[in-house]
Design a protein around this nucleic acid. Structure first.
Lengths: 207, 207, 207, 207
DNA sequence: TATGAATGAGCGTTCATTCAT
DNA sequence: CATGAATGAACGCTCATTCAT
């Protein structure tokens, strides 16, 4: 019955074919980010985003078939940016350096746009994610697992659980820092490393 | 004709004076909790709450002058319930036992109604809180600080920061557990204890 | 999962409990009729109806949960008015008088508000009808069948088909009359009677 | 700078001069027919038609300056096809054969694409028609009048009224048949003939 | 006090139409 | 001629809130 195969609910409606379109998409996504930061979930309306982006509401809907698709694109953008940096973890010499390579991008992204990070966190839990976004998020977990499995890291009874806990600790700490308006990236990164390593050691000893 | 002094934006419009009123308020708050759990933020409307509570929308507005006041009351209820349990930390023999007395109620509340806990977390960040709620939340931080300051706990360079970090770690881990549908309270509580103690030790050593 | 049993798609959302409500419903339905007449299908918007009725758009939606429900109510109103008059067919002495008792109300209703009648005709075909409306419409067919089955009427090979054809002839002729702006009710009624009787005789002879 | 004379509102913007254009117009009109059949009035959008026709929306607007022009062209196409067949009525030997030559094409067209026929019927009443379409429609009435005026047909007191009534009867009966999903063309044609002849006889006798 | 009818700003979304490329 | 990105008026509809009863 359907005329065209369905795409995932949060993916753009059409692949932009012209340079102009690409620019428009980009402008809209950034406008969405700003509206979310400035007005929160309640003030996040498609009309507000279109206005801030300087495009008509019709244009917005040419690229994002539903309001949620906007958020989906934003999540994808942020997650990919995170992963782009975190990939360097794999190439680090020591386990601790690899851990830093995971933590530092999280800290950076959180402290750069704390309100945005927090709101997207909430949306990620609410929305059915893109296949693409899902893949990228799993990649982060995989990088974490690989890091924990290094020979110079405290051996874990269950790497999967440990990886999830580590991600949860990182997320919890940087979220709280963002809420408190913390700005000292190095200090925060240091404390997160301590928490993660402390957890790994304690978990390794079974204490 | 005289104006009564304004209360904080999220507090109930009137203090219920009669038993019947108290019961009504209670019913409404629980209805709000259920709507939030069952339909999420999007489905949370004052009309839906009133219907679920079995009162008219007019009555709801007698006790909660704004939609946000409903959420405020819900947050207060949950936070007070948490604190009620956590107060026992002060009376524990050892630091570790005190830590458990803080962590266990958090785990319990999260795993009992994970969806509710997560949504209220988001609201807490968004809403200007009650003076009362603020007080109760600070009390939890104080209990944490006191616990960290016990002589049998690893001494911290900055107790305030450590307390905030500990709370962040707890929150991050139980939130993630709630999202993953974890149900093993004891296992979760154990891992949270390890993370917190690991952090405290690492932080103490300055490592 | 669902909180309340679904009603038919075109039925009012709530049964009006107060006198005021009843009046409001009535006013809205008549406003819908007028908008349909004056602006046709294209100009028939819920906002236009609300404005013409002198109520807010919110009130309209309290009684009619969907745009289509408005049309459904209108169809029901017109059909019931028709049936109310046509019921007298059953009590007529002769078959021809009974036929007149069926045809005359159709002619009257069509020439009174020809544009409305035509548009509702179209809507009836498009919309899934109320159970109630369906019942009323079948009643008209039944009255027709009973009339054709009278002993002083030309006997038909298939009463069901004959009844449907008779209704189709009536509808076709009064629609055309409405479109042509015809105003002579008696002349039209006479011609419709001729057509119906002519058909019945020809069909009876098998000619 | 000189203004070209306006054409009727529903006529194509330009007369296609080349074979390719003609083919494009044809493809678009048929696409319009299919969209109308498959999705009804509500789903009938210019973008949908363009997509189904495999042309860009811009091209569609080159040939049809307004949405209504599309419908106008469709009506003209169907009406001309009808007339093409009905012209043979003039050459029939007997009046009854001539009547069949009028009725049969109507039955055929209705039962071939009943949904389309019904929707176009509605549009014909709504739209200001082409001069061309008007001419073709009057030709059908003229053919009918000529047939009724044949010496072997029952003489009518008013040929114009009789012709209009006959057309109305035909339309009413085939519309109803289309709605009921009737598929027996011969049976339907027979019943329509009976109705028309029955009417003519009754009208002739003044009964 | 309790009720629920009434309000209306504002939301998400569509689609006829234009025009730069 | 053809394309399709862009426009924006206008639609259907929701829901927080008020107030006459």
């Amino acid at each position: 019955m359907s005329e065209s195969p369905y795409k995932s609910r949060s993916s753009p409606r059409k692949a932009p074919r012209q340079a102009r379109s690409l620019a428009t998409v980009s402008v809209i996504v950034e406008a969405a980010a700003r509206i979310l930061e400035e007005r929160g979930h309640e003030g996040f309306s498609t009309n507000a985003v279109a206005e801030k982006a300087g495009v008509s509401i019709g244009s917005l809907y040419q690229y994002f078939p539903r309001k949620d698709a906007l958020i989906g694109a934003l999540i994808l953008r942020q997650t990919m940016s995170l992963i782009g940096d975190a990939e360097s973890a794999a190439g680090q010499q020591t386990g601790e350096e690899a851990l830093s390579a995971l933590i530092d991008p999280c800290v950076r992204q959180q402290l750069e746009r704390p309100a945005l990070a927090r709101l997207l966190d909430y949306e990620e839990a609410r929305l059915p994610l893109d296949a693409e976004t899902d893949r990228v998020k799993h990649r982060f977990l995989e990088l974490t697992r690989n890091t924990l499995a290094r020979p110079d890291m405290p051996p874990q009874p269950d790497t999967d659980i440990a990886a999830r806990d580590v991600v949860a600790i990182i997320k919890g700490m940087i979220d709280a820092a963002g809420e408190h308006g913390e700005e000292d990236r190095d200090g925060l990164a240091l404390r997160v490393r301590r928490a993660v390593l402390g957890y790994l050691r304690a978990s390794s000893e079974g204490g």
